[in-house]
Amino acid sequence: MHVVRKFPDAEIVSNLRTGDLMDDSIRSLYRDHFDKLTRYILANNGSQQDAEDIFQETIVSFIELVKKDKFRGESSIGTFLYSMNRHAWLNELKRKGRALLREEKFEMNMDRGEADKLQQMAYGEEKQEIARLVASLGDTCKKILLLFYYEERTMKEILDATDYDNEQVVRNKKYKCLKQLEQMLNEKPELKQTLKNLLHG
């Protein structure tokens, strides 16, 4: 039987930072905040699909902030996610050219510290483009790079998960894939600022 785990805010932040119980912590964020954030989007001219997309963007950005130690718990996760969600939706509305006056007031009244953190939410389109670029790599390249950098697997583990003969072949393949992706990104200078923002915050 699947056990539903609920975590207090501090534990979620700690888990996201270290990567321990990452999946359960993300599930906990969904269970605790999805309804409220979705209601906001639906009440402000958004569709269910908009709400789901924005929520995913919000969660990704929140985890990236936590990993960079930019969320220090001055407010609750719920309050913070709500602000991020609103900000992301405001950006989306602006992109769609139907920003609401009420929303603009919200942006003007926002304090500087909050605005800085929410800057993480900016470049939504560019982030999606970066993801699309990585996704366009071949399956093998994606697999090796994700296993090594995202999953932090050893070369031995990656060898077991692929059809290569030895670790050196895997290492060479990983190098080529990384170089290929680097070239693809360098060919898109418009993504540079977003990458710098993701890297340095």
Binding site: K127, I130, L146, Y150
Partner: peptide, 16 residues
């Protein structure tokens, strides 16, 4: 480092 960041970002998006 930016290239690695792109991979990490993609990985996280995929997980979420």
């Amino acid at each position: 480092k930016e290239t690695r960041t792109a991979i990490l970002h993609f990985g996280l998006r995929q997980k979420v």
